[in-house]
Amino acid sequence: MSVVRRRCAPFLLLVVLLAGCQNGVDGDPAPDAAATSAAPTTPPVPAAVVTADPPLGSVDVDPVAPLEVLADHGSLGVVRVTAADGTALPGGLDATGTTWTASADLDFGTTYTVTATAADAAGRTSTTTGTVATVTPRTFTMPTVFPNADTPVVGVGQPISITFDEDITDRAAVESHLSVVTTPHVDGSWSWLSDRTVHYRPADFWPAHTHVAVDVDTYGVDVGDGISGQAGKHVEFDIGPKKVGVVDATELVLRLYVDDQLVQTMPTSLGKDSTPTPSGTYVVMQQSRRYTMDSSTYGVPIDAPGGYRSEVEYASRLSNSGIFVHAAPWSVGQQGYRNVSHGCLNVSTANAGWFYENFGRGDVVEVSNAGATLAETDGFGDWNVSWDQWVAGSALHPGA
């Protein structure tokens, strides 16, 4: 009998052993690879954080700095900002719900309590409370603006005048908060006449019928020496027709033009040799139907040689130093021939009445070939300096 040798047994054993290894010890199935990796973890939701600008705890804060309350990692809910007396500061949230902004300026010397709630992405809420205290200045200064609501229409020569009731040591800080917008556009410049007074004018007279809007945004502005602006002002006015009077002291005829057309002539008498009328460009400052002329207002007692006190009609003031166009019936015989006044422009009563009725604040009178030039600071003598000199008086661009 023949014997058949089986040579496949070792191979089968190897397959069985390999299969056993793949199925695990003792024939158990192998664990899934995915099951052996670590399960992913969800990152924690950050808590909402409430901050403020200026930061909570701030003191000596500028009252015009816009107060904001902000939420990081969440959105704001109720925001309340109250002064010590319980007065709430108005404000509102932006479209994202992350920023609340005050809609009013803060008051000086006031501590505000800020209370704000915020919710994070998981819906958890928290409340933050803190304070912000504003500065208490040594004193305040209030601006006075001319033209104003009582002068809605002025002449082409009228400068804008702002006068403060305290000395301004930081002129640039003030000037940077002054704005003039004209329709149509007219370029101009501010120029400081003193520590309390700043004026604005164009290089030449205003164009007739210009609309002017002035903003004095000085509330809360530190003007130096511990002084802050007490309030802001907004003024609008219009420039009327171009009205200019012209007189030559060697001719003594006052010629009056409206929109460059001659409309009236008046014989006049200017200041005599001892009291000459200053030459230069004048601007009508104010008008009085009757006015008492008094030499003591410029240092000459009424009982001294050359002193006087008398009432005149139709007085149109041209300078602080007492130059007027006014009725002088006593000098009609000299008007047009000799200079006999104390410096004023003497005209007849009828002519003074015409000037009073037809010229007014901001209109111009130009005097030539008379005395020394009218000072820039005498009334509205602004036009008696060159444009370069005028611009040099600006605190923001001197010498430009």
Rank of each mutant, 00 (worst) to 15 (best):
residue 89 L to Q: 01
residue 151 T to S: 11
residue 107 D to N: 11
residue 379 G to E: 06
residue 46 P to V: 02
residue 287 Q to W: 01
residue 32 D to A: 09
residue 14 L to Q: 03
residue 29 P to I: 02
residue 392 A to G: 10
residue 252 L to T: 05
residue 19 A to I: 12
residue 75 S to G: 08
residue 9 A to Q: 13
residue 375 A to R: 05
residue 331 S to K: 02
residue 299 G to S: 10
residue 32 D to N: 12
residue 108 F to Y: 15
residue 146 F to V: 08
residue 266 M to F: 03
residue 258 V to I: 08
residue 238 D to H: 10
residue 168 I to K: 05
residue 45 V to A: 10
residue 162 I to M: 02
residue 232 G to L: 03
residue 291 Y to R: 06
residue 348 S to D: 12
residue 234 H to A: 14
residue 226 G to L: 01
residue 396 L to I: 08
residue 353 G to Y: 10
residue 22 Q to P: 01
residue 186 V to K: 08
residue 327 A to T: 10
residue 90 P to S: 04
residue 288 S to M: 07
residue 307 G to D: 13
residue 314 Y to D: 11
residue 209 H to K: 12
residue 347 V to I: 10
residue 375 A to H: 05
residue 52 A to F: 00
residue 336 G to K: 04
residue 133 A to K: 01
residue 176 S to I: 00
residue 396 L to F: 00
residue 207 P to S: 08
residue 263 V to Y: 09
residue 45 V to I: 15
residue 367 V to N: 03
residue 124 R to K: 13
residue 125 T to S: 13
residue 42 T to W: 02
residue 364 V to M: 06
residue 232 G to H: 10
residue 178 L to C: 06
residue 4 V to H: 11
residue 381 G to P: 08
residue 101 T to Q: 14
residue 240 G to S: 04
residue 337 Y to S: 12
residue 304 A to K: 11
residue 334 Q to P: 01
residue 203 A to M: 09
residue 256 L to F: 14
residue 398 P to E: 07
residue 254 L to I: 08
residue 354 W to K: 05
residue 73 H to W: 02
residue 222 D to P: 09
residue 142 M to Q: 14
residue 15 V to C: 15
residue 339 N to S: 11
residue 6 R to Q: 15
residue 318 L to F: 06
residue 42 T to L: 11
residue 3 V to H: 09
residue 309 R to C: 07
residue 102 A to L: 10
residue 342 H to D: 14
residue 193 L to T: 09
residue 84 A to S: 13
residue 294 D to H: 05
residue 3 V to L: 13
residue 314 Y to P: 04
residue 61 V to A: 02
residue 133 A to S: 15
residue 131 T to A: 00
residue 298 Y to N: 13
residue 372 A to N: 12
residue 319 S to P: 11
residue 1 M to P: 12
residue 216 V to C: 08
residue 176 S to M: 12
residue 313 E to V: 00
residue 317 R to I: 00
residue 130 G to Y: 08
residue 247 V to T: 15
residue 113 T to F: 09
residue 84 A to M: 07
residue 70 L to M: 13
residue 86 G to F: 07
residue 346 N to S: 08
residue 144 T to Y: 13
residue 305 P to M: 04
residue 231 A to H: 04
residue 20 G to Q: 04
residue 185 H to S: 13
residue 360 G to S: 14
residue 210 T to Y: 12
residue 185 H to F: 07
residue 161 S to R: 13
residue 157 G to H: 02
residue 39 A to G: 06
residue 167 D to S: 10
residue 377 T to E: 05
residue 262 L to C: 07
residue 319 S to F: 00
residue 303 D to S: 11
residue 393 G to W: 07
residue 26 D to R: 09
residue 39 A to L: 09
residue 215 D to F: 03
residue 272 K to L: 12
residue 95 A to T: 11
residue 383 W to I: 00
residue 2 S to H: 08
residue 67 L to G: 02
residue 377 T to P: 00
residue 70 L to N: 12
residue 10 P to F: 06
residue 49 V to G: 02
residue 27 G to A: 06
residue 59 V to D: 14
residue 70 L to F: 04
residue 117 T to G: 15
residue 196 R to S: 13
residue 321 S to K: 09
residue 33 A to K: 14
residue 392 A to C: 12
residue 199 H to K: 06
residue 60 D to F: 04
residue 54 P to E: 10
residue 394 S to I: 04
residue 270 L to T: 03
residue 282 Y to W: 02
residue 60 D to N: 15
residue 283 V to S: 03
residue 112 Y to C: 01
residue 312 V to Q: 09
residue 220 G to R: 03
residue 240 G to H: 00
residue 139 T to K: 11
